[in-house]
Every structure is written in structure tokens, then in C-alpha cells.
Design a protein around this nucleic acid. Sequence first.
DNA 1: GGTCGATGGATTGTCGACAATATGACATCC
DNA 2: GGATGTCATATTGTCGACAATCCATCGACC
Lengths: 257, 257
Amino acid sequence: MTSTVSDDFNEAKALTAVPHRVLSDEVADRLREAIVTGRFKPGQHLREAEISAALQVSRSPVRDAFAQLGHEGLVAIRSHRGAIVVGLTAQDVEEVYTLRASLESLAVRLAIARATPEDLSRLRELANRMPEAAARLSPREYAELDVAFHDLVYQAARHDRLYACWTMLRSHIFRFLLTRNLVNPDFSEVGHREHGELVETMAAHDTERALEMIRVHLEGAYARLIKGYVEPLDQRADGAPRGPGSDSRTGVDGSGE
Amino acid sequence: MTSTVSDDFNEAKALTAVPHRVLSDEVADRLREAIVTGRFKPGQHLREAEISAALQVSRSPVRDAFAQLGHEGLVAIRSHRGAIVVGLTAQDVEEVYTLRASLESLAVRLAIARATPEDLSRLRELANRMPEAAARLSPREYAELDVAFHDLVYQAARHDRLYACWTMLRSHIFRFLLTRNLVNPDFSEVGHREHGELVETMAAHDTERALEMIRVHLEGAYARLIKGYVEPLDQRADGAPRGPGSDSRTGVDGSGE
DNA sequence: GGTCGATGGATTGTCGACAATATGACATCC
DNA sequence: GGATGTCATATTGTCGACAATCCATCGACC
């Protein structure tokens, strides 16, 4: 166990790469936390100097963190005008869920073809923890489990760019779930049962049925969200009604030359 | 409400917002240009100091530009190790096109429902310019027209987050097209005819048929790409074979506190 | 009276210097 | 001889100061 031990570990993928965290990652986490939990209200203007003073870091990591959150869609960044927490309008919910339906169909299809036995057992474990979670855990932990399950599906798809797209949606979905669970305490949604069935359908390589299941699952989640959401949406802070159109997108207007 | 002249202009959408460009945008453009045209080879290590000296700007905008390109997927950013130009492996082509098929189906479906007459006429104009372009224009201009057409489709879908996903693909597709057109000079692909037909099908609100057309169109593009691409792929500079998995993705692990 | 132009204050964009970190080569030990 | 520990070097991450820009307010003018 001296010569080839490291090789065994590496090739067996038993170890996962350690994440290199820098200050901007830490700052981004705190800000994301504050946004999804609602401590930072939609419409609120985040000032670099304020945040950097509160967190006792320089403005540079704060700036980088803003950029990260901007790419996740949690804040809108406008030139020379800073970052503004984006809202949770019904249109946002619709955008996120129409896109998610497209992405997750692809993810399920790929995951069926590529998921390893380890992937499947991890998925089963999470699915099994959801029912007890619905009864015993906090709204937050329940939302975390839900998002973690779907995150595993995307990971099992082994498609880096697809996963990057999912990253843009994940924080929003977590925010949606959390807000709904907090507003509507009987959040024992029927959804968690569908997770377990989905795993088994995927394990059985029944692509057709799995696609139909994920479609129904997401449609249901969307419907539940909209139902409990039409009212609590309008708790924004000041009058910043979601900037005009797609102005919020930072100037990523691509290879236009 | 205040019924003034400017409201009329805004509501008619006759004017498009002027893009606020800062230095990092400019730097990102130059770097993207160098990457897609192949002046920066896959595997090449981009040093902040080098670029900032060459462009005579500070390291800050260069750093921001790296982040932008990282989100577009043109470079891989690793902690304390800088940016590396990503490769054009067959797997990359496959990833981009499987994802694109998913996204563009949604885009076409939405565009059929939401496209304005102005959108359609702009699409027609671009589609009409492609045949002559195939004969008279440079490979680059032809690739630009192709990308611009599909970009308009995504814009017509009026879906900010979908458009953001497309942004992650666009540069890659442009790079693919350009490389193929340069390697294979008789690039008068049959694709441009399909653009015109797609527009009319969309204008006729024939969703079913339009979806089938875009599927066939993209499959054809993918096939042509792979055929002319299996060889010229391996022109990378040094041995940096596409970093391990998704290490480049920053730790946006949802809500871990 | 309403529109247009100037000014002040606040906030972001950019810069150059310093500190922290990863990497590869070298020497050392078993 | 092979593996391990140490160190120098190159490169990125962070910082604080300055410059450029935007927004709101106020005053002048038609």
C-alpha cells in the first residue's frame, strides 16, 4: 500500500477535488445567502463600499462577487450604477421554469445513459431522505434537499455546459422554494414521492417514461409555486420595478464586430 | 400618466438602448477575437500581466475580461493559475450542439408566439443575405451572418435567461463555423436555404413544423461540423487537455453556509 | 410654466503596489 | 534509486487611492 495507493484512489474517483475558495467566493456566498433568505429585498441597491465595510474586505472581492451573482441572475448589474437585487415577479418564475423544463429534459436523458451506480445510489439516498425531511426538517433544509436532488441529476448527465446553465437557475429555484415554504408552512408537497419514482425509472433506462415524469414533476412544482406566489411577490423594497426589458444583462453582446 | 413624446418612442421600441462599454468589455472583445480566429491556440496560457502590457491597460479590466470569457466557456479559469484557452475537442462540439438543440427548440417555440412583425422582417432580411453571402463574402462574414440569424431568433423569444444561455454557446459556434469555413473553403452549406424556410414557417405559426425544421437544421450543421472537424481538432499548443471535469466552475454550491 | 443646461455629491471603473498562493526544481533521507 | 521535504520563482488575489461617470438638484432662459 505504498506504491500504487494514490493511483487507486484517483482512478476510482473516490475523492473529489478540493474547491479553491478565495475571498470573492466567500463574499458571494454571504450575499447569495442574504438574497435568497430575503434579508436583501428585491429592488435594493447593493453598494460596493457598504458591503466591503460590513465584511471587512476590500472592494475588489466584493466586485467579483457582484459579477458572480450577476451571472446567476440574482442581481442586475448596470454600468456605473452598481448591483440591484432582482425581483421575483411571476414572469421570473415563468422564465425559470420554462427554461428548466428544457434543460432538465436533456439532463434526464443524458443521465439515463451516463449515470454510474454511485450516482444512482446517491440519488436514491437523497430521495429517501425527503419524506422524513418533510415532517421533521426545517423549510430551509427541505428546500436544500430538493435542490440537491436535482443538482445530482444534472451532475450525472456529465455535461459541463448544461450544468453551467443549471447554475444560473439553481439559486432562483432555491429562493422560490424557500419563500413558498416560509409563506405556506404546510409545504409537504407531493413532489418528494416523485423523486424516488424518477430514480427507479432512470435506473431502468426507461427514457420515455422518465421524460414524461420530469415534465409532470416540473409542471406540478410550477403550479404549486404560482398558486402560493401570486400575492407575496409584491414585497419589494423601493420602486425599482425590474429595469426595462433586458437592459439588466451586462454587456455580453458577444462577437458583434 | 404623463403622456409625453418620449413615451411614444419607448413604447414603439423604435430605438434600442446604447450599450455602456467599459474597458473590460473592450479587452474581452479583443481576446475573444484572438481566440475564435485561432491566434490564441487551445491550451495556451493567458497571463494577466502580458495582456495588460500588450493592451496598455491595468490588470483589473483584463481580470474582468477573463471572467467574462470564462463564463462564455472560451477559457478555463483555475485558482491562482490563470486562464487557459479551451480546446475544440469532438466532445466540446457534441456538448455545444446537444445543448443548443434543446435551447433553440424552446427559442423557436417562444419566438413563434412572441415575434413582432419587425422581428420577422429582420429575420427575413438576414436570411435573404445568406445566399449572396455564400458566393461573395468572406468565410468570416458568412459565419457572422449565420450566428446573427440565430441570435435574432433567440432575441425574438423575449426570454432573458434563455438568451443568457445562448450567450454561452454563441462564441463557440462562431468559432466552429469559422474554423470549418477556413479549413474547408467550399463552405456554401445548404443551411442558408433552411433559414428562409424557417422564417416563413414561424411566420405561419406552424410550431410543429418549425420545431422539426430547427431539429433537422441543427443536426445537419452538427454533422457537417464533425465531418470536417475530426482532423483539425488536434492543433493545440501545449499539453493542457481541458482541465479535470468542472473544476473551473466556481463554488456556487447553492446555499452552503 | 416648462424645458434646457450647469453644478455638486455619490458611486463605480481603473490603476499600481503589496501579499498570498501554487508550482517545479533541488537537495535530502531512507 | 525512489520518495519526501524544502525553497525559490512566477503568477494571481487583494488592497487603498485616484479618476471617470452618472444622477439629482438647482438655476437660467425662452
